[in-house]
Amino acid sequence: MTDFLNALLSGAGFGALYGLVALGLVVIFKSTGILNFSGGALMAVGGVVAAGLGAQGFWIAAGIAVVAVAGVGAVANLTVMRPLLGRGLFPGVMVTIGLTSVIEGSSGILFGRQPRFLADPIGVPTFQLPFGTSMSSTLAVAFGLSAAATALLAVAFRRTSVGLQLRAAAVRPEVAAMFGANPGRIFTYAWAVAGGLAALAGALLASLTVADISIAAFALRAFAAMIVGGVDSLGGAFLGGILVGVTELLAGTYLGDDFRLPSTMVVLMVFLMVRPQGLFGTPEVVRP
């Protein structure tokens, strides 16, 4: 019972991290139609940068990493992503894969490959909870930050003019442009937001485990989170992340650690077969 509750708690915490990265994927997919494979690299380089600044304490280090990686996202959009609009799935996927390579290699050249550590965001390492359960404070913070980021973005998408333009640009770039939206600038915002969210996840992960560029692989679960939640739903990314994280931790607890990643991929596959639009996404309409 305690194991089960612990798995739920940690699962929700890790799931919130996947949700953060998935949120970035959704923002990009929703606005530009590009399926971003570089979320993991953005996250990892965020973790590496934050850990490199570890002497400043978690919050300052994470803040700088978020801004820096948001910049990386924006630059990526301005240089290599923008020419891809409207060119379909394959080019976008391949360029973001290329981007992943460039980011990972550059990170190795600039910051070295040695693993680094980052302090916890708050003083206490773990919270002791009823029924003998406990939760890492970093995971609790991750959960809170992820929920807050999701809510903030959802409101921004609905209420602000940038959000409105993002939604319009996603549906009809040419019409949005007619009404004065500047899709180029809008997409840069989308990439910056995605970079920042990924870097935040990276910093949190760095304080949970270690920071080196190989933590990029963690973000594979973000794809599962994105599909489970629905590729065009912000809240779905968060909840999808939780669902995926809980599944993963339960599989890890009851089946063994090597079942963790595969269990998330099974969830992904099941959703694709049974409900490809996810929990909250809009079903795709195909017209001949």
């Binding site: 290599v80 020419p83 894969i97 290329g98 981007l99 990972e104 290699g105 550059s106 190795g108």
Partner: peptide, 26 residues
């Protein structure tokens, strides 16, 4: 310089090649 990091350099070049082909020579 960067040539002292052959592995990292390979990774970067590989990524740049992929990007360059998609953008310039599809």
């Amino acid at each position: 310089g960067i040539l002292a990091y052959p592995h990292e350099l390979q990774t970067v070049i590989y990524g740049l090649i992929i990007i360059a082909f998609v953008l310039l020579k599809p």
